[in-house]
Design a protein around this nucleic acid. Structure first.
Length: 466
DNA sequence: TGCGATTTTAT
DNA sequence: TAAAATCGC
């Protein structure tokens, strides 16, 4: 009776429901991971993310090898092509049960359903686990048994679920056999060769060190510092979370322990609510699959006539809009594969409201660059900014990127770092160099009038009501 | 986590 | 008369 664990978006040995279940019986355990480059391209995975995933799939194979669990790396072009090698592996290894943790994108769900049917025919059992979130997906519901579509009541319910349930992470399974030689993926698929340098260290241990360092050194100031992109105010754990090297549950438990030890309660509470946001958006994806099918959560916004993406879209992508904070943020994204969260909102709102370009194009571009690209959160964030989503920004509440820059980068340090053309401007002028004085050579004038475009966007949303 | 116009309030 | 509160997009 050999057990197979299929790893996908859960590249960890600690706190892994599928792995824990597979190791429970006294049976041999095998592991596998499927490389699907064309599917990844269709899903706009970035080179940074693919390289992160491959590095962590290798690290996982090493950790599993120490537990006596051999890893097989399978190759397929797309999800559809992955069923055949998976079932072949099951036959070769005489697998009795396949264990995996659920994923919630439509293509992933279709793939898993098709695999289950195939395995049923072969008399192989399929065991799936709701391990992507802190509270199992689908369990946080209103008193009427409906899914929440507003964050605040969701998070209240989520918090009391956490208090009642006191979830604890699964420990790393004990070794089930002698160590084996780890398998290794050496090839990076061609499309993903060109990536920025790794943002964070590789491996589950490194992820846990970073979590501990954040909680002991910076989480206390999180509430005060997290909105200032020039500060090191955020946890920087998102690449690990997005790809399952860390679980939300591990982060939550570590944060609650830090709270119990008297850490700054406000900072930790604010950070915990970010973990709740992650669960919230995964639940939205689960209950409303249309959001992962390029559809708006709010159907009436489907009729908005977005501007065709032309030169303005190119300028946004490349960080030459003439709005310094937008350009600084886009250059940070392009050069590092990561963007500060406040700036994700600022740049997304600028694209969707001031340039009035379809949020789907921005969503796809972010995915194509981010090392922490995570369907649920990225889609949720974009639809929030575009006012097409659940609990979205009201359409009339449009960020002014210059005001945001003055408020959250008051000395202009962040802008100065990423837009060196403007380095000589003082803190008064750097947020809006087109306002009086000479614009430094090579830096463009704003490609859009912020005031006018804001008014037009509000009018277009207003017209939906008539 | 908006902004600007208008009305009300404090002195 | 200026600051604060309120209103509507």
């Amino acid at each position: 009776m050999t057990q197979l664990v299929w790893f996908r978006n859960d590249l960890r040995v600690a706190d892994n429901a599928a792995l824990t279940a597979a190791c429970k019986a006294d049976d041999p355990v095998h592991a596998c991971f499927v490389v699907t480059p064309e599917q990844w391209q269709e899903h706009d995975w970035s080179p940074a993310r693919v390289q992160f995933v491959i590095a962590h799939a290798n690290a996982l194979a090493e950790d599993l090898a120490k537990l006596g669990i051999p890893m097989t790396f399978l190759q397929a072009r797309r999800f559809d092509d992955s069923l055949e090698p998976l079932t072949q592996l099951c036959r070769d290894q005489n697998i009795a049960r396949v264990h995996f943790n659920e994923e919630y994108g439509v293509n992933e769900r279709r793939r898993d359903k098709a695999l289950k049917q195939k395995l049923d025919d072969l008399d192989i059992e399929t065991c799936k686990y709701r391990d992507q979130t802190v509270a199992p997906v689908g369990d946080i519901l209103t008193q009427q048994g409906e899914p929440y579509s507003v964050f605040t009541p969701f998070s209240r319910r989520w918090r009391s679920w956490v208090d009642e349930t006191q979830p604890t992470p699964f420990p790393i399974p004990k070794a089930i056999a002698d160590p084996v030689k780890p398998a290794r993926l050496d090839e990076i698929p061609d499309a993903f060769r060109d990536a920025p340098p790794a943002l964070v260290e590789t491996g589950e241990d490194a992820a846990h060190h970073q979590l501990e360092a954040f909680l002991s050194e910076r989480a206390g100031a999180y509430k005060d510092d997290r909105d200032f992109p020039a500060l090191d105010g955020t946890s920087q754990l998102s690449p690990y979370l997005a790809n399952g090297v860390l679980s939300g549950r591990q982060c939550l438990l570590a944060a609650r322990q830090a709270q119990g030890m008297g850490g700054n309660q406000d900072g930790l509470t604010t950070w915990i609510s970010e973990i709740a946001w992650r669960d919230f958006y995964v639940n939205i994806l689960y209950h409303y699959p249309r959001v992962s099918m390029h559809r708006a959560f709010k159907p009436e916004t489907e009729s908005l006539a977005w501007n065709p993406p032309g030169e303005q879209f190119e300028a946004w992508k490349e960080g030459r809009t003439g709005i310094p904070i937008v350009d600084a943020a886009m250059r940070q994204l392009n050069e590092t594969g990561w963007m500060h969260n406040r700036l994700r909102m600022v740049t997304a709102m600028f694209l969707t409201k001031n340039l009035f370009i379809d949020w789907r194009l921005g969503e796809a571009y972010f995915m194509s660059k981010l090392v922490d690209g995570y369907l649920a959160s990225n889609n949720g964030g974009w639809q929030w900014s575009a006012s097409t989503g659940t609990d979205a920004a009201p359409y009339f509440r449009v960020f002014n990127p210059v005001t945001q820059s003055e408020r959250f980068d008051p000395k202009g340090e962040f802008v100065r770092h990423w837009v060196p053309e403007l380095a000589k401007l003082d803190a008064k002028r750097i947020h809006d160099p087109s306002k009086g004085g000479v614009i430094p050579g090579g830096y463009p004038r704003p490609i859009v009038d912020l005031k006018e475009s804001r008014k037009e966007a509000i009018a277009k949303f207003q017209a939906l009501k008539d």
